[in-house]
Structures are given as C-alpha cells and as structure tokens.
C-alpha cells in the first residue's frame, strides 16, 4: 500500500508542480501586479484607472457579442446542412472547414486587409465597374468581419459534433409521431444540440473579446479593443501594472459570461471537441 501510494505520488508530482508554478502562480502574480504600483507598493491606482477604459470595454463587448451572434447564425445552419450529407462527404467537408484554421491567423487577416483596403481588391473591382469606392478598413464592420471569419470554424465544429451524435432513430420516431420538419427542429435538433452551441459560443466569444491583432489590422488604428490596450501597456509603455489590472478584469469578465452560459446548458457546458 505504501509502495502504491509512493508510486502514485511520483506520477502526480511532475504535473502538479508544473501546473502549480505555471498555471496557478501566474494568476496570483497578475493580481499582485494589478494591486501594486511600479515600485511594488500596494495601490488601487491601476484599478481606479480602469474607469478611463470603460468605453473600450463597452466596444469590445458589443463587437464580440455581435460577432458571436453572426457566427452562430451562419454556423448553426451550416452544421445542420453538413449532417444532411452522406457520411463520406461529411468527413471531407469537415476537413474543408478546419483547413483554414491551420493557416496562420495573422496572414489570413492581412489578406483580408488586401481585400478591403482603399486600393484593395473590392475597390479595384468597384472602380472598374465605374462604381464609387469605399474605404472599409477602420469601420466596425471590417473588425467584426475579421472576428467572424477567423472564428467561424470554432462555432461549426462543436455544433456539428453534437448534431452528428443525435441518434437517427430519434428523428425517425419524431416523424412517426407526426412532427413536421419545423417541429422536429424545435423539439429535437435544437434542444439536443445546445451543449455544442454553448461550447461554440464560448470558443468564439473568448478569442473575439480578447483579440488585438484583428482590430489592429482591420480597425486601422481607429478601433481599440481591450486586447489592444493590454498590448500597448505591456509591449509599448511597459506599464505592467496597468496591463495586469486590465488582464485581470478581462479574465473576470470572461469567467462571469461563462458562468452565465453554463447555466443555460444545465451544467452540460463541457468542451465538446
């Protein structure tokens, strides 16, 4: 018995140590930096300074919520259409959906910039047709488009996974019992795919609200999100304390929204990937 528990301890030790030092401690360090000033003395200054960024937080939340809703509106029917295909085609097409995710996010976003910018592809086509051109970079639409584009696969993937798991005999039973297509959708498919939807929403919302690259490129420096402010404080101003307090608030914000999401799915909000 002692030999067993000694072995067990030996097995558990490396990861527990690693997780303790590199996952748990850093969170406390963030709190430490958030509540001290540059000399290391206790201070509320960084937390109070957050009031200046209320507008940034508001914009970030609105943008990421809109982006999440749009990805859901595209991703949900798309996942549903996928399940209607023959199994072989489903596998092939899932591959097609995931393929863009393996390309570097920076370069794909830059490519969108080439499409949307002043002398970009869309404007070249528009002026070629004799139509008025528009500079789309720097508009909220461009930033939201970047979010939707980059994170759409994260919405499709978990929803498709839960939908594909729905037993076909359930659907047949629903038909036998007289459900029409709409009733089947509302009473069977939608309720059974909720865990996938919850997981998809989290997987799109979290990277959207914390992005700084998409807003930097497609926002043209005019649109600032929380991520941009954190990035500037840490990498440009070297104000680690303010950067930490912003990160801390972002983390709390996400924890709260996740808690709300998990209530919707009755505690089934596990990652489904």
């Amino acid at each position: 018995m002692t030999k067993r528990s000694a072995r067990q301890a030996l097995i558990n030790a490396p990861y527990m140590l690693w997780a303790g030092i590199f996952i748990v401690v850093p969170l406390f360090i963030v709190m430490y930096y958030a509540f001290t000033d540059s000399t290391g003395a206790f201070s509320f200054a960084n937390i109070l300074a957050l009031a200046d960024y209320a507008e940034v937080f508001r914009v970030s939340i609105i943008f990421s919520v809109i982006a999440t809703i749009i990805t859901l509106l595209i991703g949900y029917p798309f996942a549903y259409c996928l399940t209607k295909l023959p199994v072989r085609a489903q596998r092939m097409q899932m591959m097609l959906v995931m393929l863009p995710m393996w390309m570097n996010l920076l370069i794909r976003t830059y490519s969108w910039m080439n499409i949307l910018e002043k002398n970009g592809l869309i404007n070249t086509v528009l002026s070629g047709l004799g139509l008025p051109t528009a500079n789309m970079i720097g508009t909220p639409g461009a930033v939201i488009l970047g979010m939707v584009y980059n994170y759409l696969p994260y919405m499709i993937l978990p929803i498709y996974t839960t939908m594909a798991k729905i037993d076909p005999s359930l659907s047949e039973a629903a038909e036998d019992l007289g459900c029409n297509a709409w009733q089947k959708m509302r009473r069977l498919i939608v309720p059974m795919s909720i865990p996938g939807v919850v997981s998809g929403i989290t997987m799109v919302f979290v990277p959207s609200i914390s992005t700084f690259y998409i807003s930097q490129k497609l926002g043209g420096g005019k649109i600032l999100l929380i991520g941009d402010i954190i990035e500037r404080q840490i990498q440009v101003s070297y104000n680690y304390n303010l950067g930490a307090s912003l990160s801390f608030v972002l983390m709390v914000l996400i924890l709260i929204s996740m808690a709300i999401m998990n209530r919707f799915s009755n505690g089934e909000g596990e990652m489904v990937v």
């Binding site: 850093p26 969170l27 360090i29 963030v30 979290v206 990277p207 609200i209 914390s210 700084f212 991520g227 954190i230 990035e231 840490i234 950067g243 930490a244 990160s247 972002l250 983390m251 996400i254």
Partner: peptide, 8 residues
C-alpha cells in the same frame, strides 16, 4: 484568452 495566459 491567450492574451491573459501570455501576460500572466
């Protein structure tokens, strides 16, 4: 979010 993991 990655940015929080990175910063922490």
């Amino acid at each position: 979010p990655d940015i929080v993991t990175g910063v922490s």
